[in-house]
Design a protein around this nucleic acid. Structure first.
Ligand SMILES: NC(=O)c1ccc[n+]([C@@H]2O[C@H](COP(=O)([O-])OP(=O)(O)OC[C@H]3O[C@@H](n4cnc5c(N)ncnc54)[C@H](O)[C@@H]3O)[C@@H](O)[C@H]2O)c1
Ligand SMILES: NC(=O)c1ccc[n+]([C@@H]2O[C@H](COP(=O)([O-])OP(=O)(O)OC[C@H]3O[C@@H](n4cnc5c(N)ncnc54)[C@H](O)[C@@H]3O)[C@@H](O)[C@H]2O)c1
Lengths: 211, 211
DNA sequence: TTGAATATGTGAAACTAATCACGACATTTC
DNA sequence: GAAATGTCGTGATTAGTTTCACATATTCAA
């Protein structure tokens, strides 16, 4: 798949750059230096230059980067023109928050359907997104490649298997369960409790200077 | 601060190990090997052994680790006996989810107060946590060292400054804004939109074998 | 037109983390 | 109690990422 030499660490920063460049453009700025960008997104300027350089020479020495050009480049690279449909599984506390928000600010991902085991929630809608019964998963989910998991941990393995059998390629897992998937499925864990505990640990055990 | 040689990558995994060991104990298991642990938490077994070894020799060759002992050790190391009080700023979609959940499963962190600018929400409570007006921040927040930020991005800088002036040491920031803090304050960003976009990027651009 | 200022792109170095691979020792079996 | 088995702890290696530092190209002011 084209330039797969790009480090994962870099790939994770791309959406961040993209969003900030959008802000710049709507502020009417036409040029930006790696130093300015650095201050805004809190990433070292050398890292930014290195990140950009994986895609070729996007800037001009002595000048910086042209916002319009850079933005256009990233739009293509991040496939911002192509909408990725997402299914959300579990319309509880977290799921509800995501549905209401629905990542509106980004134009390339959209939650298009949700599922819940609770029959009271099934066949309603929220934030314009239809909520189906989890029993209808196989029937409805055709073609959706990305799922957000916000169900109880105990349900995670079972639902994951069903998702995988139905062609899901990527899962954003908010469950504390560490799910098992075949090699061709990618899982990103976001474990909010762990994040909070890790922050507390760092505060107590790490020297205060550096972040 | 004692053993600050511990790699950050290791520190981030500690809460994960801790949680899983708890599960094991409540299942009545008394011993566990790095291999078993590895399968459950999806971290290479050599990495687990290395992680543990930073704290000394916790296991026994040919046997594995004693669950009880290991758990006791981590309880102390992660200060699980000491409660860390947390303030939540912004009781909107996300904030509400966190309040209702309140990280009940962990015994060492607890949201003890929340703030919102909306006067309808102020002076009510949710999930047993009092919600105050943001105007009362300075008056109420005394002694709390960790804050969760779930306010609109445009408010992030202003509120951060107020938090820092009032002695906050760590911020878990869910806002897309990259906030600026003095060196002695630690910020962890959890940028959900970026996480979703990054997952989509990986799916489209990375070879399918490996996760 | 010139020269000072600026900011990129990138080799090289430094740092951080993951993984390999194996000696040492404990446990278990017979 | 000897042999086989299992598993840790870790030195060495490899991989991945960040940062330094500077030659180079461009801009800009005078
Ligand atoms: N809310 C938080 O702040 C928070 C924080 C950290 C982790 N988490 C984790 O996120 C997950 C969701 O948390 P929550 O607070 O939203 O939980 P919740 O109980 O509010 O919501 C879970 C939802 O999933 C639905 N559900 C249950 N089984 C299902 C199934 N088999 N198929 C489809 N839907 C099913 C339930 O009906 C419910 O609506 C949990 O695993 C939790 O541990 C949540
Ligand atoms: N909800 C999501 O799924 C989601 C996803 C990604 C990012 N985010 C980010 O998380 C943040 C919160 O999102 P949300 O969906 O909960 O937003 P929201 O609008 O539902 O909630 C924001 C809350 O903050 C309160 N608020 C506003 N200004 C305040 C101030 N100065 N002091 C205290 N409270 C104030 C509002 O009254 C509101 O209750 C936003 O920055 C958003 O971009 C949310």
């Amino acid at each position: 798949m084209e330039q797969n030499k790009i480090p994962q660490a870099t790939a994770k920063r791309l959406p961040l750059y993209y969003r900030f460049l959008n802000n710049l453009q709507s502020q009417g700025k036409t040029r930006v230096s790696s130093k300015e960008l650095s201050e805004a997104v809190k990433v070292d300027s050398a890292t930014i230059r290195r990140d950009f350089s994986y895609f070729g020479a996007l800037g001009k020495k002595g000048y910086g980067y042209n916002v319009e050009y850079l933005l256009g480049f990233f739009r293509k690279t991040l496939d911002q023109d192509e909408l990725t449909e997402v299914a959300l599984i579990g319309v509880g506390n977290l799921g509800t928050a995501f549905l209401k928000y629905n990542f509106m600010k980004n134009n390339n991902t959209k939650i298009v359907m949700a599922f819940d085991a609770d029959e009271e929630k099934a066949n309603t809608e929220m934030g314009g997104v239809p909520i189906y019964s989890i029993d209808d998963l196989e029937e409805k989910i055709n073609g959706v490649k990305v799922a957000i998991l916000t169900i109880p941990a105990s349900e995670a393995d079972g639902i994951t298997d069903r998702l995988v059998r139905n062609g899901i390629g990527g899962i954003l897992n908010f469950t504390p369960a560490r799910i098992t998937v075949p090699d061709h499925v990618r899982v990103h864990h976001i474990d909010l409790a762990v994040e909070l505990q890790a922050l507390v640990y760092f505060l107590k055990h790490y020297p205060l200077v550096e972040q």
